Computed example of a mutant assay.
Amino acid sequence: MSIIQTVTPVSHDLGGFTVRRAVPSPQCRMVGPFVFIDQLGPARLDVGDGMDVRPHPHINLATVTWLIGGDHAPGNFSGAIEHRDSLGTFSTIRPGTVNLMTAGRGIVHSERSPQDERQKGAGIYGMQTWLALPEAQEEIDPAFEAVSDLPMIEDTCVKARVIMGSLWGRTAPVTTYAETINAEIVLGGGGSIPIDAEADERALMLVGGAATIDGQPLGLYELTLLKPGAAMTLASDTGGTVMLMGGEAFATKRHVFWNFVSSDRERINQAKEDWREGRFPKVPGDEEEFIPLPDKPKTVSYP
């Protein structure tokens, strides 16, 4: 069997679009360095509406934001997101560009739909994932990068874009702190592609259409964990879009509470207190609002 486990995400209706959270869950706490996996949309909001994620903090992790777009976004739902952070970064996330924000010892950011998106009804379709940092790098300086020059592998009826790490002999020019693989795979009818076997842990998520792994159907939006070390083939008879995620297995567990991830439980408690007392830096250009520390966050927590 190529599949060792499937995880059905918990869905949250955020008023106009759905967020499906597969990790962390009681069934799966990590896939390689991926300690958080959210799938967003596809959806188009009403004219005048948009996504507004107010300033909030992170520690000891890196966030990866990826929008699905172009000819593989059904109904052109891909949209755009304006990112601002406490480093002074302003970046508009669009399909084909990966935004990597390294929180390290601490960062604050916000994510909002651009005004031009609101005027036509903001589209939302993509992935937001968090990568746990290795213990020796958890407290590094915060950083940000947006990379568009990503390798594209094209074959008959298949296009695969390497977002992070090395796959199919190509390497993305994106910072990795642990061995990481991440790719968007778009299969046309009759398309197929081998799934590299080198990573310690790998998972697939079908985000549109239909696809199989070694002949076994993938469930839409389910996180499908693959058998380690096994070479296998992803294919589609009618066309589909699949996200591949994984990398090296971490030897030590991570504690998760709200937007905080750390190998040290007390470090999370300190971050909670710092946010409550206003000790994190502000986000230039988005200083008026913030998300208060919740008593019970929606993120599955292991404090």
Results as ranks from 00 to 15, higher is better:
Met164Pro: 01
Ala183Tyr: 11
Gly165Phe: 01
Ala172Met: 08
Glu179Ile: 10
Thr180Glu: 10
Thr176Met: 09
Thr175Val: 14
Gly169Tyr: 07
Arg161Leu: 00
Thr176Cys: 13
Asp155Glu: 15
Thr176Trp: 02
Ala160Cys: 10
Val162Gly: 01
Gly169Pro: 07
Glu184Gly: 05
Asp155Ala: 15
Ile185Asp: 00
Val186Ser: 09
Gly165Glu: 02
Ala172Trp: 03
Arg161Tyr: 02
Pro173Arg: 12
Thr175Arg: 15
Thr156Gly: 08
Ile181Pro: 03
Ala178Phe: 02
Thr171Val: 04
Ala160Leu: 09
Thr176Gln: 13
Val162Glu: 01
Ile163Asn: 03
Ala183Arg: 09
Arg161Pro: 00
Thr156Asp: 14
Arg170Leu: 07
Glu179Pro: 06
Leu167Phe: 04
Trp168Gly: 03
Thr176Tyr: 04
Thr171Met: 03
Ala178Leu: 08
Thr171Glu: 12
Ile185Asn: 03
Gly165Gln: 05
Lys159Asp: 08
Asn182Ile: 06
Ile163Lys: 05
Arg170Asn: 06
Lys159Asn: 14
Gly169Cys: 04
Thr175His: 14
Asn182Phe: 14
Tyr177Pro: 01
Ala183Gln: 11
Thr171Ile: 01
Ala178Met: 08
Val186Leu: 05
Ser166Arg: 11
Ser166Ala: 13
Asn182Gln: 15
Ala160Asn: 08
Ala183Met: 08
Val174Ile: 07
Leu167Ser: 04
Val186Ile: 14
Ala178Gln: 12
Ala183Glu: 08
Ile185Met: 03
Ala172Leu: 07
Arg170Ala: 12
Leu167Tyr: 06
Val174Glu: 02
Leu187Tyr: 11
Ser166Asp: 03
Cys157Trp: 09
Trp168Ile: 06
Thr156Asn: 14
Met164Ala: 15
Asp155Gln: 15
Glu154Thr: 14
Glu154Asn: 09
